[in-house]
């Protein structure tokens, strides 16, 4: 099931699948994923055009052999450790999602990036370095091969291989149970929020 930009409260995401794109390298930061100069728009609508904008282009502006250029149409990104570090910009996973990415397999993620993926209904699962590298190599050899992330069973399947992966508990619960729209979840707790606020000395006497 493809995630939607602004989900309803009842969208269950139990599995995502499609061809893969390896995006190798540790500490790939959100400035690379979505350069700041493209954040000067008040909507996320055009973000897919800017995904890895600089990294995908030669000095003369033409497309180079960046994986995103070679694996067009991919749905599953396979990344290494501390992916999405740096800026909190949701523009980065928004751009990935709008480009076509429905799920990510990686060694580890920066926390804000992972939170942003959850907000968008993009499962971001983890496996160890060797497993991830093998999958990246497999994609290079099988660009049309299908990869499935089973969020419920926490497995990734490609070719004849099934691997166990990890996923943050809250992300798994949220996606599988269709409760990843935290605004709706928390909005229903307004009276409890009032009680919490009453106990905070700094909220009242501020002005």
């Amino acid at each position: 099931m493809a995630p939607d930009a602004d989900p309803g409260a009842d969208q269950h995401i139990t599995d995502v699948s499609g061809t893969g794109v390896p995006i190798p390298g540790d500490d790939v930061d959100t400035d690379q994923i979505l350069p700041a100069k493209f954040m000067k728009e008040v909507t996320f609508d055009n973000m897919a055009d800017y995904l890895f904008y600089d990294a995908r282009r030669d000095d003369d502006g033409g497309f180079n052999d960046h994986p995103l250029n070679r694996f067009e149409g991919a749905s599953i990104a396979v990344v290494n450790s501390n992916f999405g570090c740096g800026s909190s910009r949701e523009h980065a996973p928004q751009a990935m999602m709008r480009w076509g990415i429905d799920g990510v397999v990686g060694e580890s993620y920066a926390e804000i990036f992972r939170d942003n993926c959850k907000s968008l209904g993009i499962p971001a699962v983890t496996a160890d370095h060797e497993t991830v590298t093998q999958l990246q190599e497999w994609i290079e050899a099988n660009p049309d091969g299908d990869i499935e992330i089973d969020v419920e069973e926490t497995t990734v399947t490609y070719g004849d291989t099934v691997i166990d992966v990890d996923i943050d508990d809250a992300m798994r619960e949220a996606l599988v149970d269709g409760i990843w729209d935290t605004t709706a979840l928390m909005y229903s707790n307004r009276s409890k929020v009032d009680a919490t606020v009453d106990g905070l000395p700094y909220v009242e006497g501020d002005d």
Partner: peptide, 14 residues
């Protein structure tokens, strides 16, 4: 926080 979380904070304070 990301933008969807900004929406959360604006709408719910949380």
């Amino acid at each position: 926080i990301g933008t969807s979380q900004i929406r959360d904070v604006l709408a719910t304070g949380c």
